[in-house]
Amino acid sequence: MDQKQRLELINIMHELYQTPTTIEEQWHRVTPLLTEFNATIGQGLEGMASMINKHFTNAEKFKDSKVQKFELESGLIKLNMYFKKLDTFEKS
């Protein structure tokens, strides 16, 4: 997953966090990015990537906006940490 795709995923998920009522209509933008994210998981970070994916897919499944916001926020926090760790591994 290149830097542009990483930023796009973070930005889309942040937009959805701000307005969870748009999840259904915007999910088509998320799906290819999550597919790419899953295809390019860094070695040793599989568990963390799995949790991120689970949070985001849970947000799409639930209809309660409080649950959606929780799942999106949890996923975003972990996603940001994941990309920082991945950058550290790639530089070493």
Rank of each mutant, 00 (worst) to 15 (best):
Q5C: 06
N11Q: 11
I41P: 00
I12N: 02
V30C: 02
L9Y: 09
G44T: 05
E71K: 01
L9T: 04
E24D: 15
Q18A: 10
L16C: 08
D2L: 06
F70Q: 06
N80V: 10
T40F: 15
T57F: 10
I41R: 11
Q43W: 08
I10S: 08
A49T: 10
L76I: 05
D87S: 11
K85M: 15
E36L: 14
I10A: 08
L33Y: 02
N58I: 01
I12R: 00
I41D: 09
K69R: 05
L16D: 04
I10N: 06
K69T: 06
L7I: 04
D87A: 12
N58L: 09
R6D: 06
N58F: 07
I10G: 04
L72H: 02
E90P: 12
F89E: 13
T88Q: 09
E71F: 01
M13T: 10
L33T: 02
T40M: 12
H14K: 04
D2H: 04
D87N: 08
I12P: 09
T57E: 10
T21M: 12
I10C: 05
E60K: 05
L16S: 03
K84P: 02
H55F: 13
F89V: 06
E90N: 10
Q3G: 11
L86F: 10
K4Q: 12
K69E: 11
M48K: 06
L16Y: 07
Q3S: 13
N80D: 14
Y17S: 03
P20R: 00
S65M: 11
E60Q: 10
N53V: 10
Q68W: 01
L34Q: 07
E90M: 06
E25Y: 13
E24C: 06
K54N: 15
E15D: 13
M81N: 11
E46C: 11
S65E: 15
L79T: 05
I77C: 02
K54Y: 13
F70L: 09
T21R: 03
M13Q: 07
H14L: 11
V30H: 00
M13V: 12
L33Q: 04
E36H: 07
E73S: 12
I12T: 03
I52S: 06
L34Y: 14
T57Y: 10
S50V: 04
E73N: 11
K91R: 05
E60C: 05
M81S: 12
W27E: 03
L9W: 08
T88I: 01
M48C: 11
Q26V: 00
E71D: 13
T40D: 13
P20F: 04
L79N: 07
N80H: 03
S74A: 14
I52L: 05
H14D: 14
E36N: 12
E73F: 08
L7P: 13
H55E: 12
M48H: 11
K54S: 15
L33A: 07
T22W: 02
L76N: 09
E60A: 11
A39Q: 13
W27A: 02
L79R: 00
T57I: 06
D64N: 12
T88D: 14
T31A: 08
I23F: 01
G75H: 03
G42M: 15
G42F: 15
G75C: 07
N38T: 09
A59T: 03
T35D: 15
I77G: 02
F56N: 02
D2V: 01
L86C: 04
N11G: 14
N38P: 02
N58P: 14
Y17P: 03
E24R: 07
